[in-house]
Structure formats: structure tokens, C-alpha cells
Amino acid sequence: MAYLKIQNITKKFGGFTALNNVSFELEKGEFLCLLGPSGCGKTTLLRIIAGLEEPDSGNIFLNGKDITNLHPSSRNFGIVFQSYALFPNMTAYENLAFALKNKKNSKGDIKKRIENLLNLVNLTPVKHKYPSQLSGGEQQRVALARALALNPDFLLLDEPLSALDAKVRNRLRIEIRETQEKLNITTIMVTHDQEEALTIADRIVVMNEGRIMQIDTPQAVYEFPANPFVADFIGEINFIEKNSIINAIRPENIHIGQNGGIEATLRHKEFRGAFYRLTLSLKENNQLIKVDIPSSRKIILPENGEKLFIEFPIEKLINYKSEETSNIKKFSL
């Protein structure tokens, strides 16, 4: 039986449908990411799971029990908000204690529990500092520790890393996942960053315009995007239309042939560190195609305007029906 089950959730704001019949399940200890562009309904869904918003219809089950109508305080979860929502007038320690003091715990128990939590997120040295005196990463960890303070059944993370710079974000990503694994706590994280979702999650729920586009493991979502939206949203992709069949292929899967294959002209090339990104136009119909060439391959690249030949390996082609791509914006220079 699924540990947390989201069933047919629909939510409308006036005439706007934020969530349209959304369903999925989580196993105990699973880390799931809600991924999608802004306005896709992922944060609304998280707030409905938390009980901060009311769904128009649908149910949420925790361990088989319907918690749809419960007040947030009785759902027993922890949450980290995008802003962290740390109490600025309390030190890291006091922020953790605020929740614990309210439950009838003994002083010794509270102290021990806080020390444990601070240890867990490596904050013991700064426990008596106020949030404004902490770095962004430290604040984020206080928020995480506070969310875990009451031994929640599950954890909700709302874009927890979006306010941090790239280096810190990468490090904290690992820390969050390690902590989650250590506690084996069921976790739902909302993010709009596909790289973050791919690296941290057990499974990803890709959402668009209030609907679920695909639910799968990161690898499957990347390699076998269920529809053009997912293909386009996650990673780079080329769409090539032929006889009302759309073929999609990732730039790194296109080979440059010495001669033979499809003829194209190099329009632009840029160095991206690990690879070169080439932009070609097909001779046949002038469609623009992105191709990635690993820089380690050390081949001699043609100059802009020169002719070259490319190959689409058949096993890497993903086929869609043409109408599915109508709402996908075509790549252009």
C-alpha cells in the first residue's frame, strides 16, 4: 500500500484551473520532486497536501487514512518554505525550541532533541546566532531542522534551494538527500530546476498547466519523455517533423558524419566547457538543429557557413504524433 496517496485533486481559482484531476502515490521513504514551469500548479499542490489550501475535490491519504479534511497541525508533517520563514527574533536554537516547547515535553528532552537536530544538519557551532547572522545555506539548514523537529511523518520542501547561489545549492542538494536517506523520511520537493530534480529525486512528477505530464524515475523521464512537453522541458531536444510524425532527438545523440548522411550548414558554434554546442541548418528545409560534440573528442570543427553531414541514430529517436507538439515552441536562433 502506498504511504502517501494523492487522489484526483482538482483546484480552481475563479476561472483558472490550477490543478486538474491530479493523482500519484509515494512509497515510504521515497523522495519525489514536483517539477514544472512556474504557474504549473506544483506549489498549489504542495500547499494542498500541507492543508494550507483547500482542494475543490479529491482526497489525500496518509498510510491509508484520509487526511484531506484535517487541519495542518494534525497532519504531522514538516515543511520548509521558499523564504524559510525563520523567526528573525529567535536564534537558531530558539527557532527549533519554539515548536517543541508547545508540546508537553520536559526541558531536558527538548534540549537533547535540539542538540540532535543541530548535529544532524551541522549547525551546532552557530546555534546561538540569529537568522540574519547566518549565511543563506545555514538558514536553509535551520529551516530543515525545524521542519524535522516534531518527528514528522513526511516532509514538504517548497523550492528550498532557489534563494542560494550555485555552489551552495549543489552542496545542500547532497546534504538534503543524505539527511532524507538517513531518516528514511518520505519527502515531496517542489522545484522548477530540472537539474535539481534529476539529481535529487527517486521519482519526478512533471507538471504543466495543472496536469501531470509524466511520473517516472529521472533516467526514464530524460531518456523516454512521455510527450513533447517533457522532452522539451527537461534537457535540450530537437524536433524533426516528417510525414506528420515528429521525431525528437537530444543534441548529444546526433553524430557528425565525415560524408554521407543528411547535409547541413554550420550556422553558429559555442564552447560550453564539456562540449561544443553547434547550431546547424538542414539543407532540405532550413530547419535549425542543435548538436553537442564532447570537447574531449578533439575533432576539427568546421567554420561557420561550411557544409557538414549529420546522422540521427535510429535507436535514439523518440516518435510523437505531430499534433502533440503544436504547443511546443520551435527552436530558433
Partner: peptide, 26 residues
């Protein structure tokens, strides 16, 4: 931060407590 009330909901802290302990001091 407008999430303070939500934080207190999730921690089962009554809203009046957040009002006196956080909102008022701030």
C-alpha cells in the same frame, strides 16, 4: 513573512502564540 502563521499551523503552535512571540516583537 506571511508564512509565519503557516509555520505555526504545521508545528501545532496556536496562532496567538506566534502573534505574541514573533509578530509583536518584530
Amino acid at each position: 513573512d506571511c508564512e509565519f502563521e503557516n509555520v505555526s499551523y504545521t508545528m501545532s503552535v496556536p496562532v496567538y502564540k506566534t502573534f505574541f512571540k514573533v509578530t509583536m516583537p518584530l
